[in-house]
Amino acid sequence: MREYFFVGLVTAVVTYLLVPPVRAFALRIGAAPEVRERDVHKVPTPRLGGLAMFGGMAAGLLAASHLPWVGSALAGEQSGRTTSALLAAGGLIVVTGFLDDWLGMDALVKLGGQVAAGGLLVYYGVSLRSLPLPESMGGNVFLDTNLQAVMTILVVVVAINAVNFVDGLDGLAAGIVGIAAMATLVYSMVLSQDQQQTRINLTAVVAALLVGMCLGFLPHNFNPAKIFMGDTGSMLIGLVLATSLVTITSSVPTTALDVNRFALVLPLLPLAVVVLPLTDLIMAVIRRTSEGLSPFAPDRGHLHHRLLDIGHSHRRSVLIMYAWTFIFAFTIVGLSLEGVPLILFPLISVVAIAVLVVLSRPKGRKGAHAADRPESSQAGHHRATTG
């Protein structure tokens, strides 16, 4: 546990220290959006915060490689070349995001970069190897090489765009992903006590890195933000989150009977840790298509916009979504480790989503004037592949 904490601390400190020079660099090259009349912030705010997060991740990997426990997890035969995979795939996704944040990029080209990053994970041996189904359904289903690649890339693309999609308010994406990573870290550390020779230890290392990246960046990004992570950062933390999902899904053998079976399937979906952005994404697609618009057309119907529109402040909207994510993620983790009937998971998910939708419904005149409210400082400049 101490080694995981140390890796996260190194990552957080380096990320935090790198943000000021990255911010200066972004301003120098003009990687800052123009301030528009409807925006909340009054001065140009640079993007490219993901460069600092990548530096923090690299430092965390370097520190981890010199530690006995987490170093062996990274170098184990079941782990693939994880350090090389994260650096190569992360480097590619950062370059893609950097060019988009600075110069702009076609959505299909950006999608190609995401697919290629997923391909690099597969190339270095970090792939989804099996689906942990209950014994009543046949137990673990092992995937062939081609299906491993397809499924891994799919998880990467979905996770990246889910995170990218929710990156709409100062500190929102970093906070939500950080909370999700904390839940994943707790879950994987508990499982690793009984399953010490599996990839669950690798999942814990990756989750510790992700926690550090988010915590190190948040002090600079919380409202009022001094810097945005941009696509450079949102796609990077989405990639690292996807890596934790891929490794945890195929980590625990079916012999671990004292672990609830549905908990092992959750990370694949990935509902337990990114249910909020995925819910927002699905609702947006339904909303836009029902209005005869393209699913990719931007609008102000996101959950965080609705919270602003019904009268919550910028900070309160973000804190509400933090609290919801924390309660949901850790409730699922707690129930998973205790062992509960499978039917409870969909019931909890439906209730949690319903609560969030109700909380964000416009009420009375506040909702009627939603279009007149200014956009958030970050949402107005966000150009996600899906949003």
Rank of each mutant, 00 (worst) to 15 (best):
Q78D: 07
Q78V: 13
Q78H: 15
S79Y: 05
S79H: 04
G80S: 11
G80C: 06
R81N: 14
R81V: 06
R81W: 13
R81M: 09
T82I: 05
T82Y: 06
T83C: 06
T83D: 06
T83K: 04
T83G: 15
S84L: 14
S84M: 09
S84P: 00
S84C: 00
S84Q: 07
S84H: 12
A85K: 01
A85E: 13
L86M: 11
L86N: 03
L86F: 03
L87Q: 13
L87R: 02
L87Y: 07
A89D: 07
G90Y: 07
G90P: 08
G90D: 10
G91W: 10
G91R: 10
G91E: 10
G91T: 03
L92K: 08
L92M: 14
I93P: 00
I93M: 14
I93S: 03
V94L: 12
V94Q: 00
V94Y: 02
V94H: 02
V95F: 11
V95I: 15
V95A: 15
T96K: 00
T96H: 02
G97P: 03
G97I: 04
G97L: 11
G97N: 07
F98W: 10
F98I: 05
F98S: 00
F98Y: 15
F98E: 04
L99G: 02
L99W: 09
L99D: 06
L99V: 15
D100C: 12
D100Q: 11
D100M: 10
D100P: 07
D101F: 05
D101P: 06
D101I: 07
D101T: 13
D101H: 10
W102V: 15
W102D: 00
W102H: 12
W102N: 05
L103W: 14
L103Q: 15
L103S: 14
L103R: 15
L103E: 12
G104M: 12
G104F: 11
G104L: 05
G104P: 08
G104I: 10
G104N: 12
M105H: 01
M105Q: 04
M105L: 14
M105E: 07
M105Y: 05
D106N: 14
D106F: 08
A107H: 11
A107S: 12
A107R: 14
A107T: 08
L108N: 09
L108Q: 14
L108T: 03
L108W: 13
L108Y: 06
L108G: 03
L108E: 03
V109D: 01
V109G: 01
V109E: 00
K110T: 01
K110P: 03
K110G: 01
K110H: 00
L111G: 12
L111D: 07
L111P: 01
L111I: 13
L111W: 04
G112V: 09
G112W: 11
G112E: 14
G112L: 08
G112Q: 10
G112T: 10
G112S: 11
G113C: 12
G113Q: 07
Q114D: 10
Q114Y: 07
Q114M: 10
V115M: 09
V115H: 09
A116K: 05
A116F: 11
A117I: 05
A117E: 00
A117K: 02
A117C: 01
A117D: 01
G118D: 09
G118A: 05
G118L: 13
G118M: 13
L120E: 11
L120M: 14
L120D: 04
L120I: 13
L121E: 04
L121N: 03
L121M: 11
L121C: 09
L121G: 01
L121S: 07
V122G: 00
V122D: 02
V122Y: 10
